[in-house]
Simulated assay, not measured.
Amino acid sequence: MASGWRALRRRILTPNTSEASLSVRGFHEKSPAARAMLETIGETFLTGYAYAAEARVPAEAEECLEKLPRQIRGFAYEGAGMGFAIRDGLPFGGNLVTQFLEGRARNHIYMVYVGVGWALARLPRFRWVKASAAAQDPVLRWLVLDGYGFHQAYFHTDRYVRQQYRHLNFPWPTGGPTSYAGRVIDQGIGRAIWFVGGADPERAADLIDAFDETRRPDLYAGAGLAATYAGAADLDELRTFKLRADQYLPEVAQGSVFGAAARFKADLVMPHTTLAASLLCGVTPAEASELADETRAQSFDRSELTSYEQWRRRIASGLVELHRAIP
């Protein structure tokens, strides 16, 4: 009976995999290979979500997640983060995300926090406190808003990408600053634009450049992260994206560091990760991870900037210093 209830819970809570189809979403199709990769990523996210929806305890889902191919496993952990956050936010929910992060998911903490943001997009606002209770890291908690932005741009593309809807004074996290939240949501929108554009650098750049110039730095940062973590672009295409980024290349580089570091921490580095990191931020995934860790470990001042924004700026400055040191 218990296993039957869990299977029913999985069917009720999990979206249909057709939701990941580029044709259903109305996204650009660059090539059959790129389409297959982007759709596989979406389907893998939903697979991870389904594991979390059905699992009795997080460790049970973890065993299934670890059997997935390395190239796409991180997206399944992201989906599981969403699934457990949804369950935490429902009546009689527990602390499943916290338990999840006590296991191997701690190596995917960036992705799990992003998954929590997906959950906020699907839950009523009065459930947000419970759903996001595990996102306590004062720096990384902002990644929840990246996930929220991605979800909105992915599922509400007309409003968030083509009509360029912008959040002002977003009511999360509690204690703010609410004025900064919109910027991180834009980083998630930029990450989604890589998918909306079918991993076509020209199409992605065209979409970003249609936004007000004040929003482009964060949008390009998100796209740089997606190009590095998700991939689906070859060397020439990455070069094109780098040229199109132009004055926003420092933001692209910072996003690329995030993407490379996330894969390195989880031991999921793939050839496309190394290629994108080398071209977009000029470092190896190992160096990107070291830079992210070192700059996050430093103390943060009580300025008007959030600790997350200070961290991002330190990464960008660190890249400049690294490149100066290279003969």
Rank of each mutant, 00 (worst) to 15 (best):
G103W: 07
G48V: 05
Q163L: 12
G93F: 04
V144P: 00
F27C: 13
P32K: 02
R6E: 13
S31M: 04
A297W: 00
S307A: 15
I326H: 06
P250D: 02
P32V: 09
R104Y: 10
C64K: 14
A131E: 09
E290S: 11
R25C: 07
V196H: 00
V283W: 02
Q71L: 13
S132Q: 06
D206H: 08
A266S: 15
G149M: 08
S307Q: 09
A34M: 08
P69W: 05
G255W: 12
R296T: 03
L13W: 12
G103H: 09
H323D: 09
Y220C: 02
R122A: 11
I326E: 12
F75N: 10
G48L: 08
E294Y: 00
A2S: 08
L96W: 02
L291E: 01
C281N: 03
P285I: 03
A76I: 10
G4Y: 09
E54R: 13
P327T: 01
A260C: 07
P201I: 08
G147L: 10
E290C: 01
T273R: 00
L168W: 07
F27E: 15
H323T: 02
L243E: 10
A288W: 03
R25G: 06
P271L: 05
V184W: 12
V24E: 13
W142E: 05
E60A: 14
L238Y: 03
R324L: 11
A34Y: 01
G224L: 12
L319V: 01
A76V: 15
T14N: 09
I315P: 01
I326Y: 07
S23Y: 02
A131R: 07
A205S: 15
R122G: 07
H156S: 14
T228C: 15
F75R: 10
L90R: 04
A33S: 13
A205T: 09
E66R: 13
A36D: 15
D246G: 14
S256F: 05
G74W: 04
H323E: 14
A286I: 04
T295S: 15
G4T: 05
P138T: 01
T274P: 00
S256G: 04
E63L: 15
F126P: 02
M270A: 15
E213I: 13
G231S: 04
V283M: 06
V57C: 04
L123R: 05
G259D: 08
Y220G: 00
G222Y: 03
P91I: 03
D200R: 11
Y148G: 06
H28F: 11
L123Y: 05
I326V: 11
L225G: 04
E290V: 02
E290G: 01
L279Q: 09
I72T: 14
I193D: 12
F84H: 06
T17F: 14
